[in-house]
């Protein structure tokens, strides 16, 4: 049963169709109930109708308004089920992308090992997301596609769609995960097949700088810290090295110069100093000493 409604993905119309069906019936029922109620209150007000009349109980009426709503309700269930089944049934030859959610960043890992903090997919091609979480429960939600699924630590869940228009769409986290919850944002970027193939096949430059950037992405740092100077939940890495920052330590303000030792110490023991204007929300990120050294070298290059 193909849907009449379209949207940016094959799933959008399926959800909207069921939504409209139920809202339509509900609106009629609500108007009926409210309309009768208001009419009775006006028509049989004590002024107009000082003496109530006896109205006989009716088994038939009770049966009628039990059976008809039951049938309506079951039709709603059925519609929802059919479209749910369509949305949830895996499609062969889908591009599979592993999604790792963590406080408060998204990491998308493609089959060839390519990693990204935004979800790039080709248009008109089925995509299957395999979701999990590195810490607490998160939920991957693409409002334009009308779908979401929780990312649960220790478990793999999945989500599938087929985008039918190129464009950029929001990704939100819809399972409460702490202070950075409303900052845990990303995008789905739907591009043409050729464009996607080109991006997918490009191997990343393997210089130290690129490695550093990938490491920041893998560890989820880029969820809160930009590398282009834009403001996120934490200070940008751009121009951070050797910068003078005002921090609050135990309630007292002081100025520090961000050097190698300071960055390393901060990653190991976050939130002892709170950078002025930001929240003390940085989680302890597990990194090795070698990785940390690489990160610092990379941050140095972001001037």
């Amino acid at each position: 049963m193909p849907t009449m409604l379209l949207g940016p993905a094959n799933t959008s119309g399926r959800v909207d169709e069921t939504f409209i069906y139920i809202v339509g019936i509900s609106a009629v029922l609500l108007l009926l109930v409210t309309g009768c109620m208001i009419y009775f209150v006006v028509r049989y007000s004590r002024k107009r109708h000082p003496q109530a009349e006896e109205v006989k109980e009716s088994v038939w009426l009770e049966v009628f308004w039990t059976v008809v709503p039951t049938l309506l309700a079951l039709s709603m269930f059925y519609f929802g089920w059919v479209n749910f089944k369509y949305i949830r049934t895996p499609v062969k030859d889908a591009i599979s992308v592993n999604v790792v959610a963590s406080k408060w960043a998204w990491l998308f890992i493609y089959e060839n090992g390519k990693r990204s903090d935004v979800l790039r997919v080709p248009v008109n091609k089925p995509v299957r997301l395999v979701l999990t979480s590195a810490d607490v429960i998160h939920s991957l939600y693409i409002p334009a596609f009308r779908i979401k699924e929780d990312c649960v630590p220790g478990i793999k869940t999945y989500l599938g769609f087929n985008a039918n228009e190129t464009g950029t769409y929001d990704i939100f986290c819809t399972e409460y995960c702490g202070v950075g919850h409303s900052q845990m944002l990303s995008k789905v970027i739907v591009i043409s097949g050729e464009e996607f193939a080109k991006w997918y096949e490009t191997t990343e430059a393997s210089g130290a700088a690129k490695k550093g950037q990938l490491l920041l992405q893998d560890k989820g740092c880029l969820g809160c810290h930009s590398i282009d100077g834009s403001k996120k939940a934490g200070p940008s890495f751009k121009g951070l090295y050797r910068a003078r920052e005002t921090v609050i330590t135990n309630g007292a303000e002081r100025t520090v110069i961000v050097d190698d030792a300071y960055i390393k110490d901060y990653v190991r023991h976050p939130n002892i100093d709170i950078v002025k204007g930001y929240q003390p929300i940085m989680p302890v990120i597990p990194v090795t000493d070698a990785e940390l050294a690489l990160l610092v070298e990379y941050i140095k290059t972001l001037k």
Binding site: V15, T18, G80, N83, F84, P143, I147
Partner: peptide
């Protein structure tokens, strides 16, 4: 209903 819940939940 299952399909709308995918969109509206949360």
């Amino acid at each position: 209903s299952l399909a709308p819940s995918l969109h509206l939940h949360g």
